[in-house]
């Protein structure tokens, strides 16, 4: 068991007129090797939640444990936690700053106190795993295309060799092809390197195909925490809180209403296709 949140509450601007409860008694367990999607409407607390996982935000109340250790205890090494729980922010390309892609990716390993050789080795490995070609390594990160920049930025986090990787809206602003490429990349990293992946998104359709567990956040609390098909069963409630189940879920419901005998659990095109072909 790697990450445990016990009764985590977080309030913004405490003791001022602007006080707002962003997280309200959240309890979660995130196990090694899981592939999780955290879904919620803007302002549901999903981004606040993930910023607790690597100690960027400290809960107002509650306890967070990483590998059995309370991260809020005195003298806990938060810096080392942050290298083990890597975080890729929304539009991560906006944090690139070095003169070359290689140097930028080395920034994380350098902060970990690794030697120059180790840094380079880590960086190369990370750049390779995000599929960035070698000819870009010595280029300025600002000259890359949008999709390449994002890969370079993700490599910057991967180079720290985290065992948990959190990605906040990693596909925002990308076109369909770019989106699929990044999601496939993340899936590959999960499968090949065995990293625990937490994907924050507001797109159910993106997430449904990839993750094995979905956590739905609403109003600072965990509303559902289950496998995708179980979560999508609540499509009416999801709609209510400004989220939607994948189109396929609705189709299956419609078919059922129209008198077809279908199993409404299909969440991906493949599953729906199999289900419909069974009928005809």
């Amino acid at each position: 068991m790697s990450l445990v949140l016990k009764d985590i509450t977080y309030r913004y601007s405490q003791e001022t007129a602007y006080e707002k409860t962003a997280l309200d008694h959240v309890n979660l367990e995130i196990h090694d090797g899981e592939f999780i999607g955290i879904i919620g409407h803007t302002g549901s607390g999903k981004s606040t939640l993930v910023q607790h996982l690597n100690g960027l935000l400290k809960a107002t109340e509650g306890v967070m444990e990483y590998n059995g250790e309370n991260i809020y205890q005195e003298k806990y090494d938060l810096k080392s936690l942050r290298t083990q729980v890597g975080m890729v922010f929304q539009y991560p390309e906006h944090q690139l700053f070095e003169a070359t892609v290689m140097e930028d990716v080395c920034f994380g390993p350098k902060n970990q106190g690794l030697t120059k050789e180790e840094q380079l080795e880590r960086a190369k490995e990370a750049l390779k795993s995000v599929g960035l070609k070698e000819k870009y390594y010595e280029q300025s990160p600002f000259e890359l295309s949008g999709g390449q920049k994002r890969r370079a930025a993700i490599a910057g986090v991967l180079a720290m060799k985290p065992s948990v990787l959190i990605l906040d809206e990693p596909t925002a602003g990308l076109d369909p092809k770019g989106r699929d490429e990044i999601l496939d990349l993340i899936k590959g990293m999960h499968e090949k390197m065995g990293i625990t992946v937490i994907l924050v998104s507001h797109s159910m359709e993106d997430v449904a195909e990839y993750v094995d567990r979905i956590i739905v956040m609403d109003n600072g609390s965990v509303l559902y925490d289950d496998v995708p098909r179980e979560v999508f069963r609540h499509y009416e409630k999801l709609e209510e809180i400004g989220l939607a189940a994948p189109q396929v879920t609705y189709l299956m419901q419609d078919l059922k209403t129209a008198g077809f005998e279908v199993d409404c659990n299909a969440t991906t095109i493949e599953e729906a296709k199999a289900e419909i072909l069974k009928l005809c």
């Binding site: 076109d175 369909p176 092809k177 699929d180 359709e205 994948p246 189109q247 396929v248 189709l251 095109i269 729906a272 296709k273 419909i276 072909l277």
Partner: peptide, 15 residues
């Protein structure tokens, strides 16, 4: 052309 089609259209196409 690096575009995708809506889920429903794609499903109908596959069917």
């Amino acid at each position: 052309h690096r575009l995708d089609v809506p889920q429903i259209t794609l499903l109908a196409y596959e069917l």
